[in-house]
Nucleic acid binder design. Structure first.
Lengths: 215, 215
DNA sequence: CATAACATACTGATCAGTCAGTTTAGTTCA
DNA sequence: TGAACTAAACTGACTGATCAGTATGTTATG
């Protein structure tokens, strides 16, 4: 590369941001490349300089979604000791991310719909599902080993917890009528209730650094 | 009407069934009218005799979805006395319907995606959401009055329960990798756990929670 | 023989992707 | 220093394919 006017990364970011806004407004199929180009203020030819196809934009948008939101959450909660608190924190932070970056989550429904058509997108989604399932199942394992709680069927529980968060996302993306601050607080209570305690704990489940070490 | 070859109702049913299969395979935007016509074995002209537009087919499909699945469930559980059992039964029957008629539920994602584009579809969906929210909130009220359980924030709880079922639908429609029989059983346990008991019951649910918790 | 029910060729609009050309930033060399 | 050169970055008109909806014709039925 001899002389980029701005860095290739910046342009791609701009394109993705524009695409995100367009997809949110009209969905994937209804959004034209020209609209995306207009939205980020350059021409269609420029867009095709950075991305080979409309589908490639969508896929890269999903990649960014995963990297920037979900993996960040998983990193952030890594320092929390108790498995229970970590699980609760995932729900809380997901709700907060949803509040802050609703447009990105809107793209999820686009992915779901596209996955009917495109096998590669479906595979990407399934990989993510399996990944989150493993994460959560692992956390349930940790909590059980540490004696924090016991759940009878960890895999199903993990699936249902993920399902709940996903349902909240759907509802919010379509409607935006829920009070997310309220949801954020409630998710904590619900998650807690879903994890029956083996032994009595002192405080409300958050923040307590009891003697027993986590994972 | 002088002489229908088959009744108009039958034809519409056939068209909707064909559309349902097509939408499931390819999504709404990617499905052509010709494909739907081919799927139900007649021509495009015939389809337009019964429906004025592609969108009208989608909307009627949603109407059937609501009438045939969700309202039926609500009617069926009407005879159950205990509010708790009624709530649990909704979850169980929804899981069973999902198992039996996955194609119909697939159309839900199509509706969600279409609602970005079409305000009337969005309004239809929102009406349904509000309706189910009221139903569930009412059930929580009933249970509380009968002394079966107490939940601190009924509206949010209703929303989260609906969200969970919706998430299960998404997961199953996209992946079909969950054991729905297992889900059906687990949903019962999860729903029970989400309804903290006022008085001691025999079940293994997390009854050790005292009143003040979380939030 | 009237009309409901169905078939099919057509149209106008849309849109993803292409391509030939233009502009700008950086490099070379006198 | 700057003119000549080069390739990256960008433009926008164009194309070929697609498809919803229509127009017009055909067949079956009471």
């Amino acid at each position: 590369m001899k002389g980029p006017r701005v860095s290739s990364g910046i342009r791609k970011q701009q394109i993705l941001a524009a695409a995100k806004r367009c997809f949110q407004r009209k969905g994937y199929a209804q959004t034209t490349i020209d609209e995306i180009a207009a939205e980020y203020g350059m021409s269609k030819g420029s867009l095709y300089w950075y991305y080979p196809s409309k589908k490639a934009v969508l896929i890269d948008l999903f990649r960014v979604f995963v990297e920037e939101t979900l993996n960040r959450i998983l990193t952030e909660i890594g320092s929390i000791r108790s498995a229970r608190d970590r699980i609760v924190a995932i729900g809380e932070r997901l709700a907060r991310s949803l509040q802050e970056d609703i447009e990105l989550f809107s793209a999820l429904i686009v992915f779901w719909e596209s996955s009917f058509l495109d096998e590669s997108i479906r595979e990407m989604l399934m990989d993510q599902y399996r990944f989150y399932g493993r994460i959560l199942t692992g956390l349930l394992d940790d909590g059980e080993r540490a004696g924090e709680f016991a759940v009878p069927d960890k895999k199903i529980y993990a699936a249902l917890m993920i399902a709940m968060m996903e349902g909240v996302i759907v509802r919010q993306v379509l409607n935006k009528d829920l009070d997310l601050e309220e949801i954020r607080r409630s998710v904590s209570g619900v998650m807690n209730r879903l994890l029956p305690e083996k032994e009595r704990q002192t405080g409300p489940a958050g923040s307590s650094h009891t003697g027993k070490h986590g994972s």
